[in-house]
């Protein structure tokens, strides 16, 4: 009787969380969990990204599958699919959807790619990367963010994303070299250890400039002779978060 009660309780909790055992079990077998919740909003977000000129359908498909609203704080949930970054605490933001798309495209990922992300934040970018490859390593220096992102990714079924609480400057040498490195926090300097952990022929994408000003996305390529070339891809602004009302207006 006690077992039956526990089972019923477990079932209720699982349904309430939307994360029953069958879904968890299947998550390991497919590239990423799919959720129909707020799909219409996600589609509208993708339309906006397309209007910017994004034509890479693999990136768009990946973004269509990741529930962005799960990666923003509850207070921002209504604006989750607005074309703006949103605050996630500790002075950090989840990037504007278009920037996430563009940075992902620039990495040219394949299923075999080994990719390192510096600045896990809420884990949204890592989830997008996990749509492409099984080898996603992400480092976050703020302990609270790292722990929350790890739990969130596990809860949503992104078991193949490895989260490390540590100093992004040092990269994650144990899993190096990487085919791609993505730095999601704006930087005034490019850590030499990250450049060293990039494979010859690898690509690194990094936003350059302050968070609240006009920035460049920088693509760094390491050629086979281990020389670096970089390219200023676009003038972007990781537009700061807007109030819920403003976000809804967009």
């Amino acid at each position: 009787m006690r077992i039956a009660r526990c089972f019923v309780l477990w079932l209720l909790v699982s349904v309430a969380w939307g994360l029953g055992a069958p879904a968890d079990a299947s998550a390991a077998d497919r590239p990423a969990p799919r959720t129909p919740a707020r799909q219409a909003e996600r589609n509208r977000m993708l339309d906006v990204i397309r209007r910017y000129g994004m034509t890479d359908e693999t990136v768009l498909r990946a973004m269509a599958g990741v529930p962005r609203h799960e990666f923003v704080p509850p207070a921002q949930a209504r604006s989750a699919y607005a074309d703006t970054p949103l605050p996630i605490g500790h002075g950090q933001t989840i990037s504007q959807p278009y920037i996430v798309a563009e940075m992902t495209r620039l990495l040219r990922l394949t299923p075999q790619s080994r990719v390192l992300e510096i600045g896990t934040g809420s884990g949204y970018q890592a989830a997008i990367l996990a749509e492409f490859t099984e080898h996603v390593y992400t480092v976050e220096i703020i302990e609270e963010l790292a722990a929350e992102a790890d739990q969130r990714l596990q809860r949503l079924g992104y078991h193949r994303v490895s989260v490390l609480h540590g100093d992004g400057w040092e990269g994650w040498p144990e899993h190096a070299p990487y085919d791609a490195i993505i730095v999601t926090c704006a930087a005034g300097q490019i850590p030499p250890p990250l450049l060293q952990q990039l494979k010859p022929g690898g690509r690194m994408v990094i936003p350059v400039g302050p968070r609240y000003a006009v920035q460049s996305l920088m693509l760094v390529e390491k050629d086979l002779d281990e020389r670096f070339r970089s390219r200023s891809v676009m003038a972007v602004r990781f537009v700061p978060f807007v109030s819920e009302r403003t976000g809804a207006d967009r």
């Binding site: 220096i141 100093d167 970089s230």
Partner: peptide, 18 residues
Amino acid sequence: GPAVRHAPGLGLGFAGEV
């Protein structure tokens, strides 16, 4: 602190220690 870093404007070719 161990994670406090500041060396803005370093060239990409620099592989040494700050």
